[in-house]
């Protein structure tokens, strides 16, 4: 057995967050959640944490998903990034510009997202 994959999920909708948390935990991932980019940034800057992948919504207060992606790309280049957007392609285009590894559009099913995470990390998908 290898170490569990550590992911950080960011969304300002708490229901979505807990759904992600339940799902990825049940798939054997270690999951942390944050309600906006600012909370996420503080988790990232906390030395006690380290993450393999980031799954983030785009439109959020304080630090948006786009902002978070730019910061992570620069300061934590090893973390793989999946952006999820539900607001048409405007912020979506910004997310690609900020070099998210992948931009997915809502609604999207969780198994698909998990498969993408596994693909980005060169893992066998757990399903």
């Amino acid at each position: 057995m290898t170490d569990p994959v550590r992911i950080l999920v960011v969304d300002d909708n708490e229901d979505i967050l807990s759904t992600f948390y339940e799902f990825f935990s049940s798939m054997g991932y270690t999951v942390k959640t944050a309600v906006d980019g600012f909370v996420a940034l503080k988790l990232l800057r906390d030395k006690a944490n380290s993450f393999d992948a980031l799954i983030t919504d785009l439109v959020m207060p304080n630090i948006s998903g786009v902002g978070l992606i730019s910061i992570v790309k620069k300061e934590y280049p090893d973390i793989k990034i999946i952006a999820i957007t539900g607001y048409g392609d405007k912020p979506g285009a910004l997310a690609s510009e900020a070099e998210a590894d992948m931009v997915l559009f809502k609604p999207i099913d969780l198994f698909k997202i998990e498969a993408k995470v596994a693909e980005l990390l060169n893992l066998e998908s757990r399903t």
């Binding site: 207060p61 304080n62 630090i63 948006s64 786009v66 902002g67 730019s70 405007k90 912020p91 910004l94």
Partner: peptide
């Protein structure tokens, strides 16, 4: 413009 809004709203301080 909505696209300008998204461009500026990367960090939002209210």
């Amino acid at each position: 413009r909505e696209d300008l809004f998204y461009r500026l709203n990367i960090i939002k301080i209210d």
